[in-house]
Amino acid sequence: MNLTLKIWRQKNNSDKGGFKEYKVSDISKDMSFLEMLDVLNEQLTEKGEDPVHFDHDCREGICGMCSLYINGNPHGPLQTTTCQLHMRSFNDGETITIEPWRAKAFPVMKDLVVDRSAFDRIIQAGGYVSVNTGGVPDANEIPIPKTIADLAMDAAQCIGCGACVAACKNASAMLFTSAKVSQLALLPQGQVERKRRAEKMVAQMDEEGFGACTNTGACEAQCPKGISITNIARMNREYFSAVVSNTELV
Protein backbone atom coordinates (compact mmCIF):
# COMPACT_ATOMS: atom_id res chain seq x y z
CA MET A 1 0.00 0.00 0.00
CA ASN A 2 1.05 3.58 -0.62
CA LEU A 3 -0.21 6.14 1.84
CA THR A 4 -0.09 9.85 2.57
CA LEU A 5 0.17 10.62 6.26
CA LYS A 6 -0.93 13.98 7.63
CA ILE A 7 0.70 14.05 11.06
CA TRP A 8 0.61 16.61 13.87
CA ARG A 9 4.19 17.74 14.65
CA GLN A 10 4.94 19.80 17.73
CA LYS A 11 8.45 20.32 19.15
CA ASN A 12 7.43 20.65 22.79
CA ASN A 13 4.60 21.71 25.07
CA SER A 14 5.00 25.43 24.34
CA ASP A 15 5.45 25.06 20.56
CA LYS A 16 2.40 25.96 18.45
CA GLY A 17 2.72 22.89 16.23
CA GLY A 18 1.15 22.07 12.88
CA PHE A 19 0.44 19.32 10.37
CA LYS A 20 3.12 17.86 8.13
CA GLU A 21 2.59 15.48 5.22
CA TYR A 22 4.64 12.35 4.66
CA LYS A 23 4.51 9.59 2.04
CA VAL A 24 5.09 5.93 2.87
CA SER A 25 5.14 3.17 0.28
CA ASP A 26 5.11 -0.64 0.17
CA ILE A 27 3.18 -0.91 3.41
CA SER A 28 1.87 -4.44 4.03
CA LYS A 29 -1.83 -4.83 4.85
CA ASP A 30 -0.81 -7.12 7.72
CA MET A 31 1.29 -4.49 9.49
CA SER A 32 -0.10 -2.94 12.63
CA PHE A 33 -0.66 0.80 12.57
CA LEU A 34 2.33 1.34 14.86
CA GLU A 35 4.57 -0.80 12.63
CA MET A 36 3.55 1.42 9.73
CA LEU A 37 4.69 4.42 11.80
CA ASP A 38 7.94 2.55 12.59
CA VAL A 39 8.56 2.34 8.83
CA LEU A 40 8.02 6.09 8.51
CA ASN A 41 10.33 6.79 11.44
CA GLU A 42 13.05 4.62 9.89
CA GLN A 43 12.80 6.71 6.73
CA LEU A 44 12.98 9.93 8.73
CA THR A 45 15.94 8.74 10.81
CA GLU A 46 17.85 7.73 7.67
CA LYS A 47 17.26 11.20 6.26
CA GLY A 48 18.53 12.71 9.51
CA GLU A 49 15.10 14.11 10.42
CA ASP A 50 13.44 14.01 13.83
CA PRO A 51 11.25 10.85 14.02
CA VAL A 52 7.55 11.20 14.90
CA HIS A 53 7.08 10.70 18.63
CA PHE A 54 4.16 8.53 19.71
CA ASP A 55 3.32 6.53 22.83
CA HIS A 56 3.33 2.72 22.90
CA ASP A 57 4.50 -0.10 25.13
CA CYS A 58 3.01 -3.60 25.11
CA ARG A 59 1.66 -3.54 21.54
CA GLU A 60 -0.75 -6.27 22.70
CA GLY A 61 -3.74 -4.13 23.60
CA ILE A 62 -3.32 -4.49 27.35
CA CYS A 63 -1.21 -1.63 28.69
CA GLY A 64 -3.17 1.42 27.53
CA MET A 65 -0.09 3.33 26.45
CA CYS A 66 -0.81 3.76 22.73
CA SER A 67 -3.13 6.54 21.65
CA LEU A 68 -3.57 8.58 18.39
CA TYR A 69 -6.66 10.21 16.94
CA ILE A 70 -6.79 8.60 13.50
CA ASN A 71 -9.05 10.00 10.77
CA GLY A 72 -11.36 11.51 13.36
CA ASN A 73 -11.56 8.50 15.70
CA PRO A 74 -9.57 7.68 18.82
CA HIS A 75 -7.55 4.49 18.11
CA GLY A 76 -8.77 4.62 14.49
CA PRO A 77 -11.85 3.22 12.77
CA LEU A 78 -12.20 0.01 14.83
CA GLN A 79 -13.14 -0.31 18.49
CA THR A 80 -9.67 -1.49 19.49
CA THR A 81 -6.34 -0.05 20.59
CA THR A 82 -4.08 1.57 17.97
CA CYS A 83 -1.49 -1.18 18.47
CA GLN A 84 -4.14 -3.77 17.54
CA LEU A 85 -5.29 -1.83 14.48
CA HIS A 86 -4.01 -3.19 11.16
CA MET A 87 -3.39 -1.52 7.85
CA ARG A 88 -6.07 -3.69 6.21
CA SER A 89 -8.53 -1.25 7.77
CA PHE A 90 -7.27 1.37 5.30
CA ASN A 91 -7.26 1.68 1.51
CA ASP A 92 -4.33 1.98 -0.85
CA GLY A 93 -3.66 5.63 -1.74
CA GLU A 94 -5.58 6.93 1.28
CA THR A 95 -4.60 10.05 3.22
CA ILE A 96 -4.58 9.32 6.96
CA THR A 97 -4.84 12.21 9.43
CA ILE A 98 -3.11 11.52 12.76
CA GLU A 99 -3.58 13.84 15.75
CA PRO A 100 -2.81 13.65 19.46
CA TRP A 101 -5.58 13.30 22.09
CA ARG A 102 -7.00 16.80 22.55
CA ALA A 103 -7.86 17.83 26.10
CA LYS A 104 -6.82 20.58 28.45
CA ALA A 105 -5.99 17.91 31.04
CA PHE A 106 -3.80 16.01 28.53
CA PRO A 107 -1.15 18.54 27.43
CA VAL A 108 0.80 17.65 24.28
CA MET A 109 4.43 16.96 25.21
CA LYS A 110 5.82 16.28 21.74
CA ASP A 111 4.18 15.43 18.41
CA LEU A 112 1.56 12.78 19.25
CA VAL A 113 2.64 12.21 22.86
CA VAL A 114 0.32 13.62 25.52
CA ASP A 115 0.79 13.67 29.29
CA ARG A 116 -1.89 11.43 30.81
CA SER A 117 -0.64 11.66 34.40
CA ALA A 118 -3.95 13.35 35.29
CA PHE A 119 -5.37 9.80 35.25
CA ASP A 120 -2.70 8.65 37.72
CA ARG A 121 -3.62 11.46 40.07
CA ILE A 122 -7.31 10.50 39.90
CA ILE A 123 -6.37 6.93 40.88
CA GLN A 124 -4.10 8.19 43.65
CA ALA A 125 -6.98 10.23 45.05
CA GLY A 126 -9.03 7.15 45.90
CA GLY A 127 -8.46 4.13 43.66
CA TYR A 128 -7.09 1.89 46.39
CA VAL A 129 -8.31 -0.51 49.12
CA SER A 130 -7.17 -1.25 52.67
CA VAL A 131 -5.47 -4.63 53.04
CA ASN A 132 -4.74 -6.37 56.33
CA THR A 133 -1.21 -7.49 57.01
CA GLY A 134 -0.65 -10.86 58.69
CA GLY A 135 -1.27 -14.41 57.58
CA VAL A 136 -2.26 -15.36 54.06
CA PRO A 137 -6.08 -15.28 53.83
CA ASP A 138 -7.88 -18.39 52.62
CA ALA A 139 -8.99 -18.35 49.01
CA ASN A 140 -12.70 -17.58 48.58
CA GLU A 141 -12.94 -16.45 52.18
CA ILE A 142 -15.06 -13.51 51.08
CA PRO A 143 -18.13 -14.65 49.14
CA ILE A 144 -18.82 -12.54 46.05
CA PRO A 145 -21.82 -13.29 43.82
CA LYS A 146 -20.79 -14.16 40.26
CA THR A 147 -22.91 -11.36 38.76
CA ILE A 148 -21.17 -8.78 40.97
CA ALA A 149 -17.74 -10.22 40.29
CA ASP A 150 -18.48 -10.02 36.55
CA LEU A 151 -19.55 -6.38 36.76
CA ALA A 152 -16.42 -5.51 38.73
CA MET A 153 -14.23 -7.37 36.25
CA ASP A 154 -15.93 -5.61 33.33
CA ALA A 155 -15.11 -2.25 34.92
CA ALA A 156 -11.57 -3.41 35.71
CA GLN A 157 -10.99 -3.97 31.98
CA CYS A 158 -10.22 -0.26 31.65
CA ILE A 159 -6.58 0.15 30.61
CA GLY A 160 -6.47 3.91 31.18
CA CYS A 161 -5.75 4.79 27.56
CA GLY A 162 -7.80 8.00 27.55
CA ALA A 163 -9.74 7.29 24.34
CA CYS A 164 -12.91 8.15 26.23
CA VAL A 165 -11.58 11.65 26.94
CA ALA A 166 -10.41 11.96 23.34
CA ALA A 167 -13.78 10.86 21.96
CA CYS A 168 -15.92 13.06 24.22
CA LYS A 169 -16.95 16.44 22.86
CA ASN A 170 -16.39 17.79 26.40
CA ALA A 171 -13.05 16.00 26.94
CA SER A 172 -14.72 14.41 29.96
CA ALA A 173 -13.04 11.67 31.98
CA MET A 174 -16.27 10.27 33.40
CA LEU A 175 -15.97 6.85 31.76
CA PHE A 176 -12.44 6.27 33.05
CA THR A 177 -13.17 7.58 36.54
CA SER A 178 -16.46 5.70 36.78
CA ALA A 179 -14.76 2.43 35.77
CA LYS A 180 -12.18 2.92 38.52
CA VAL A 181 -14.83 3.89 41.10
CA SER A 182 -17.06 0.97 40.07
CA GLN A 183 -14.52 -1.84 40.12
CA LEU A 184 -13.86 -1.17 43.81
CA ALA A 185 -17.31 -0.01 44.93
CA LEU A 186 -18.84 -3.26 43.71
CA LEU A 187 -16.59 -5.53 45.75
CA PRO A 188 -16.62 -6.22 49.52
CA GLN A 189 -12.92 -5.30 49.65
CA GLY A 190 -13.73 -1.80 48.47
CA GLN A 191 -16.30 -0.92 51.13
CA VAL A 192 -13.99 0.69 53.70
CA GLU A 193 -13.06 3.66 51.50
CA ARG A 194 -16.25 3.57 49.44
CA LYS A 195 -17.62 7.01 50.28
CA ARG A 196 -14.42 8.99 50.41
CA ARG A 197 -13.27 7.27 47.21
CA ALA A 198 -16.26 8.51 45.22
CA GLU A 199 -15.91 12.04 46.58
CA LYS A 200 -12.13 12.25 46.24
CA MET A 201 -11.88 10.80 42.74
CA VAL A 202 -14.62 13.05 41.39
CA ALA A 203 -12.99 16.09 43.03
CA GLN A 204 -9.62 15.20 41.49
CA MET A 205 -11.22 14.62 38.09
CA ASP A 206 -12.72 18.13 38.26
CA GLU A 207 -9.49 19.67 39.46
CA GLU A 208 -7.60 18.26 36.47
CA GLY A 209 -9.85 20.27 34.15
CA PHE A 210 -11.79 17.50 32.43
CA GLY A 211 -15.23 18.43 31.10
CA ALA A 212 -18.63 17.42 32.47
CA CYS A 213 -20.78 14.64 31.03
CA THR A 214 -23.56 15.29 28.49
CA ASN A 215 -24.34 11.56 28.25
CA THR A 216 -23.64 11.51 24.50
CA GLY A 217 -22.26 7.96 24.79
CA ALA A 218 -19.31 8.66 22.47
CA CYS A 219 -16.88 7.34 25.13
CA GLU A 220 -18.58 3.96 25.34
CA ALA A 221 -18.77 3.68 21.54
CA GLN A 222 -15.03 4.36 21.22
CA CYS A 223 -13.63 2.57 24.28
CA PRO A 224 -11.34 -0.26 23.14
CA LYS A 225 -12.32 -2.27 26.21
CA GLY A 226 -16.09 -1.80 25.87
CA ILE A 227 -16.50 -0.05 29.22
CA SER A 228 -20.22 0.71 29.59
CA ILE A 229 -21.73 4.06 30.60
CA THR A 230 -23.75 2.17 33.20
CA ASN A 231 -20.56 2.73 35.18
CA ILE A 232 -21.09 6.50 34.90
CA ALA A 233 -24.60 6.12 36.31
CA ARG A 234 -23.11 4.03 39.12
CA MET A 235 -20.48 6.68 39.84
CA ASN A 236 -23.21 9.33 39.99
CA ARG A 237 -25.12 7.18 42.51
CA GLU A 238 -21.95 6.56 44.51
CA TYR A 239 -21.07 10.24 44.52
CA PHE A 240 -24.49 11.64 45.39
CA SER A 241 -25.12 9.10 48.13
CA ALA A 242 -21.61 9.61 49.52
CA VAL A 243 -22.04 13.38 49.60
CA VAL A 244 -25.30 13.23 51.57
CA SER A 245 -24.31 10.42 53.94
CA ASN A 246 -20.57 10.65 54.54
CA THR A 247 -19.80 11.68 58.12
CA GLU A 248 -16.28 12.58 57.08
CA LEU A 249 -15.94 15.99 55.40
CA VAL A 250 -13.95 15.30 52.25
Binding site: G72, T97, K169, A171, G209
Partner: peptide
Protein backbone atom coordinates in the same frame (compact mmCIF):
# COMPACT_ATOMS: atom_id res chain seq x y z
CA UNK B 1 -18.54 27.01 28.76
CA UNK B 2 -16.67 24.64 31.08
CA UNK B 3 -16.93 21.85 28.53
CA UNK B 4 -15.64 24.06 25.72
CA UNK B 5 -12.65 25.07 27.85
CA UNK B 6 -11.84 21.44 28.52
CA UNK B 7 -10.84 21.04 24.87
CA UNK B 8 -8.98 24.24 23.96
CA UNK B 9 -7.59 22.86 20.68
CA UNK B 10 -10.15 21.30 18.35
CA UNK B 11 -9.48 18.26 16.17
CA UNK B 12 -8.70 18.96 12.52
CA UNK B 13 -10.73 15.92 11.52
CA UNK B 14 -13.53 14.52 13.62
CA UNK B 15 -15.90 11.66 13.06
CA UNK B 16 -18.18 12.38 16.02
CA UNK B 17 -21.33 11.48 14.12
CA UNK B 18 -20.29 7.83 14.23
CA UNK B 19 -20.45 7.51 17.99
CA UNK B 20 -23.12 9.92 19.24
CA UNK B 21 -26.38 11.52 18.12
Amino acid sequence: QHNKKSRPVAYAMSNEGKSST
